[in-house]
């Protein structure tokens, strides 16, 4: 199992950190933390759960972000910030 993490302070916005535990190219656990805002929190929880068990690939991440980006309203960070961090993590 590999633990990967990366954070970002959005200029004029908030702080966000993504952590993923990856085993055999599959996300086993994901945490997205920080002082940002997101609602509904129930959808955010589903988003975190949906990340678990998917292949850690650009296509899978983009697909989940697209789906939940429509369901969750973020303030202080954007879906693009999450995507940017995930893409950086994928390069690690």
């Amino acid at each position: 199992m590999v633990h990967l993490e990366m954070d970002k302070k959005v200029i004029g916005g908030k702080y966000v950190k993504i952590e993923v535990d990856v085993e055999n190219d599959v996300i086993k656990n994901a945490i997205i933390s920080g002082d940002f805002f997101a609602f509904p929190i129930e959808e955010f929880e589903k988003f975190l759960n949906a990340l678990k068990g998917i292949k850690f690939t650009v296509e899978e991440i983009e697909s989940i972000l697209e789906e939940y980006g429509k369901k969750i309203v973020f303030s202080g960070i954007g879906v693009d910030d999450l995507k940017e961090i995930f893409l950086q993590l994928l390069k690690k």
Binding site: G12, G13, F37, F39, P40, I41, V73, S75, G76
Partner: peptide, 21 residues
Amino acid sequence: EPVNDVTINGKKVSGSAQLRR
């Protein structure tokens, strides 16, 4: 000061947090 602060002379005196249901 967006996103959620109120400042006096550039210093924060109030911060807020919003949730919608």
